[in-house]
């Protein structure tokens, strides 16, 4: 079993990174980033089989795609702390001439990023394409992807979800961040999506639920289960129930911090709730 204390320490540090990044430039998306911190830490440290260094083609390793690109702070923090680029570069988030654009891009050659995302709903198709190339290349490694729940309102997802089952793309684990929030309010208020699990199942996917999506142990258990369901003719979906803004009490259980940065005082409170563990950038 992995040492989950180390992962928890890393998660706390990632939360600090997120808060400090968005605070510095007074912009960015802390809510969803904080909600997915445990998931990213678990994915990059325990779940994915990754090669050293970065190669765009990702042959012989698991490959991850972030579809809801606005949670770039957590992505950048975990990529940096997984060795893809210098941790100090987090200082440049959203600044001019930076590789750390507001939304992730391949355009500035940031190691770790394989597709631009930000305009929502496109990542599922991209991930499926990469999964099919893995099969053509006889590469048994997996494709992982992450999508927001609100993002499922984009129709392209359902084209892709239908395609995946119809074509037995069974080397993908697509995770949906079920935090129930989007910019204008709760997903139920904005556009109720009904039973997402039933929808994926009706489209022919295998669904694994992680009800404690901010608990490292629960995530590891759920993702191992998801992995065990790949290669059986059906695409695999993980429904990851998270709390937006997790780990910073005043940011939790609300959509208010979807795309808003904390002020100096709020930053201080947030950092106090998440003491430095591995060293700030």
């Amino acid at each position: 079993m992995p040492n989950t204390q180390q992962l928890k320490d890393l998660t706390t540090q990632v939360r600090r990174d997120i808060l400090r990044m968005v605070h510095k430039v007074n912009s960015g998306h802390p809510g969803g980033s904080l909600g997915c911190a445990e998931f990213f830490v678990a994915l990059y440290n325990e779940i994915m089989e990754r090669n050293n260094g970065f190669d765009m083609d990702g042959i012989g390793e698991d490959v991850f795609f972030l579809s809801n690109g606005h949670i770039s702070p957590v992505y950048y923090s975990v990529l940096a702390r997984s060795g893809y680029f210098p941790i100090d570069e987090l200082n440049t988030f959203r600044l001019i001439n930076s590789r750390l654009q507001g939304h992730p891009t391949t355009h500035e050659n940031l190691p770790g990023v394989r597709i631009a995302s930000g305009s929502l709903g496109q990542g599922m198709s991209v991930a499926l394409g990469a999964a099919q190339t893995k099969k053509l290349n006889n590469d048994s490694h997996l494709i992982y992807s992450l999508h927001g729940d609100g993002e499922l309102q984009e129709g392209q997802n359902w084209e892709a979800i239908m395609y995946a089952a119809g074509n037995n793309v069974d080397n993908i684990i697509a995770t949906i961040d079920l935090n129930g929030q989007q910019i204008d309010g709760s997903t139920d208020d904005v556009l109720p999506m009904g039973n997402i699990k039933a929808k994926f199942e009706a489209f022919g996917w295998t669904v694994v639920e992680i009800n404690e999506g901010n608990d490292i142990d629960a995530i590891l258990k759920g993702m191992v289960e998801a992995k065990s369901k790949t290669g059986k003719g059906k695409p695999v979906c993980v429904l990851l129930k998270t709390v937006m803004g997790n780990g910073v009490d005043f940011m939790m259980y609300t959509h208010a911090w979807h795309g808003k940065a904390p002020n100096d005082e709020q930053l201080a409170i947030g950092l106090k709730q998440n003491p430095e563990t591995l060293g700030d950038y």
Partner: peptide
Amino acid sequence: FQVGIAEANMIGLAAGMTIGG
């Protein structure tokens, strides 16, 4: 790859397929 009447998905699939050569 027959993708059906789903052009948006087709473009995304194509983009993803380039990853791996």
